[in-house]
């Protein structure tokens, strides 16, 4: 299929991703788009901010994903009294030896679920900055590299704003994607209800289908997917348009362009393509850019939302041509 990627390797990779998706969707019914976007972000080496009302299976998703890849999984419930050390860990004096011993926090894992991240104050949220960007944790001046693969899945509730601390732009920018979880369709909801009440939807029942090494090789493979220069120009044009758009107070930065390309590569790989199409970029615009754009007060008052602005940007920026 591609000049750079061998056809068989590409096919195997697509197959592995499909199996992983299929395995998780046994548990998480009716959330195919969410699942696909989370897997894309995971394989692209990014972090995901999941927004949705409680009870839509956000925790279930990450547990099923961790179970399917046989990875470590930790969950931290963010509360107003949560301290940075409760996430990252700290040094503790061992009385018997008289030395400080490192006590690792839940961040030392492969998949970290930061549940209701906006319930914790800014200083605790900031504890994740280094973890997310550098994949390392510094305690008492000593940096500890985290095991690969590593991904933070943070959740937040869009309707309950009482006593919450909105995530700062720097934190938001570190999330590769913001995924919106909606209610499943009727048939999916019925199937989900039947499955859970019959106890057939237990996360423990699903098998591990790919290994952590497979994940790393998939990540490496994704990085080799061919991207034409014009496609990169297109991704950058979209991001720049978000900054120059009328009514956008704060547009997306450079990280958004990088994320667009990275996620488009995985998306192409997922579809069995060894090269990125402009359509792959377009498909990633919403999850990658929606949390990186801040609308002006005028636009918000007039009822325009980020999705509408992004739609306009996509319609306005010419598609790449050779």
């Amino acid at each position: 299929m591609s000049d750079t990627l061998d056809n068989d390797i590409l096919q195997q990779a697509t197959q592995k991703i499909a199996v992983l998706k299929q395995n998780v969707s046994q548990i998480l019914i009716g959330q195919d788009t969410v699942l696909e976007q989370v897997i894309i972000a995971f394989l692209a080496g990014g972090h995901v901010l999941i927004e949705g009302v409680p009870g839509l299976g956000k925790t279930l998703l990450i547990r099923a994903l961790a179970q399917s890849i046989s990875l470590n999984y930790k969950r931290v419930q963010f509360t107003p009294d949560l301290m940075p050390a409760d996430v990252t860990g700290h040094s503790m004096l061992d009385v018997s030896s008289g030395k400080f011993v490192l006590r690792k926090g839940p961040a030392f894992t492969n998949l970290l679920l930061a549940d209701e991240i906006n319930r914790a104050p800014a200083k605790t949220q900031a504890a994740l900055l280094e973890v997310m960007q550098e994949h390392q944790i510094t305690i008492d001046g000593e940096s500890h590299t985290l095991d690969a693969p590593f991904m933070v899945l943070a959740t937040q509730n869009p309707i309950d704003n009482e006593g919450t601390y909105p995530l700062p732009e720097a934190e938001l920018d570190r999330f590769m994607m913001k995924v919106q979880v909606e209610y499943p369709e009727l048939s999916a909801e019925i199937a989900l209800t039947q499955g859970i009440t019959a106890n057939s939807h237990n996360v423990q029942t699903i098998n591990s289908v790919i290994s952590a090494e497979d994940v790393l090789s998939l990540q490496e493979l994704a990085s080799k997917v061919l991207v034409d220069e014009k496609i990169v120009e297109y991704a950058v044009a979209l991001v720049r348009a978000s900054r120059e758009w009328q009514g956008v107070a704060h547009g997306a930065g450079v990280r958004a362009s990088i994320a667009l390309i990275q996620t488009a590569k995985v998306h192409a790989l997922m579809q069995g393509s060894g090269f990125v199409l402009p359509d792959h970029i377009k498909a990633m615009v919403f999850p990658v850019l929606r949390h990186r754009i801040i609308l002006s007060a005028e636009l918000e008052i007039s009822g325009v939302n980020t999705e509408q602005v992004l739609n306009d940007i996509i319609a306005k920026v010419p598609a790449p041509r050779q």
Binding site: M1, D3, V276
Partner: peptide
């Protein structure tokens, strides 16, 4: 055209 333009084939 897609093969030529984006896959460089």
């Amino acid at each position: 055209w897609i093969d030529l333009a984006w896959a460089h084939r």
